[in-house]
């Protein structure tokens, strides 16, 4: 009798300590490779998946919620602020944001603040405001206070270019376990590898994670031009100069009147 109570207590403790034991997230993307061709003007990838159950899954009281974080290749950016000096506006102060995602999207089934507690959001770095954006401060890098003007300007400028996205309704559940969502990719999204991290919540707790990745690559003509410009700079320059002379000469022949 005593033994049975102990086993029950241990099981209960295990259940509360590892609530993620039961469900599994299975997901995929409509494409794992986005090609930049001459007609590329940005695109949308479809993210879809299902919450898999097994025999041990306990039924949840609330519905499932999903938060997807998509982050692009990292880059170092400088944010400059203009100030008035002797009547003209000049770049005065500047901050470097070191190795921050070039693209960052937080997509979810509903506003993230309604999915889980602020504490959990902060710990898991969910949402643009809660993502680490390390700045160069002297010889060190550190993330400063959340309402730093440079940090806010950085987020605002990135969002205005469509590179930082927060869409609280981008993912929808088609059935209680089947979901799909859209990842918006603007034309300015840089080439490279993009990570997709999925988090499944129920009743405000993180149950399990899933992940995927895709890449954006230049293709065909675009790839050829970009590669020759970098690998054979001098040849590329000579070819461009010859192209300029040919264009100029052709025009003078075509438009010749005398």
């Amino acid at each position: 009798m005593k033994g049975a109570a102990l086993i029950a207590a241990v099981l209960a403790a295990l259940a509360s300590a590892t609530p993620a034991a039961a469900e599994r997230l299975i997901s995929s993307l409509s494409s794992h490779r986005v090609l930049i061709t001459p007609s590329f003007v940005g695109t949308e990838l479809v993210l879809f998946g299902t919450v898999e159950h097994d025999a041990t899954t306990v039924p949840r009281r609330g519905s499932y919620e999903i938060v997807a974080t998509v982050s692009g290749p990292r880059e170092t950016l400088v944010v400059r602020r203009k100030e008035r000096f002797l009547g003209i506006w000049v770049n005065a102060d500047s901050r470097s944001f070191v190795q921050v995602p070039s693209y960052l999207a937080t997509l979810s089934t509903k506003p993230v603040e309604q999915i889980t507690s602020l504490d959990t959001l902060r710990r898991l770095q969910i949402g643009l405001r809660r993502t680490m954006l390390p700045q160069q401060i002297g010889p060190d890098t550190a993330d400063v206070v959340r309402d730093d003007p440079f940090r806010n300007a950085f987020l605002r400028l990135k969002q205005s270019h469509g590179l930082y996205v927060e869409e609280p309704n981008a993912i929808t559940f088609l059935t209680p376990i089947l979901f799909r969502g859209n990842i918006p990719l603007p034309a300015g999204a840089p080439v490279g590898t993009y990570d997709v991290e999925l988090k499944l919540f129920a009743d405000g707790t993180l149950i399990t994670r899933g992940g995927d990745a895709f890449e954006i690559v230049k293709f065909g003509f675009e790839q050829f031009v970009a590669a020759s410009a970098v690998n054979h700079g001098l040849l590329y320059g000579l070819a461009t100069a010859v192209m300029a002379l040919l264009t100029g000469w052709l025009a003078s022949v075509i438009f010749r009147r005398d």
């Binding site: 400088v78 203009k82 009547g87 300007a153 605002r156």
Partner: peptide, 14 residues
């Protein structure tokens, strides 16, 4: 140069 710019902040790759 003289007018107050619409956005005081600008962003650029290093």
């Amino acid at each position: 140069l003289v007018l107050r710019p619409e956005d005081l902040y600008s962003i650029r790759l290093l």
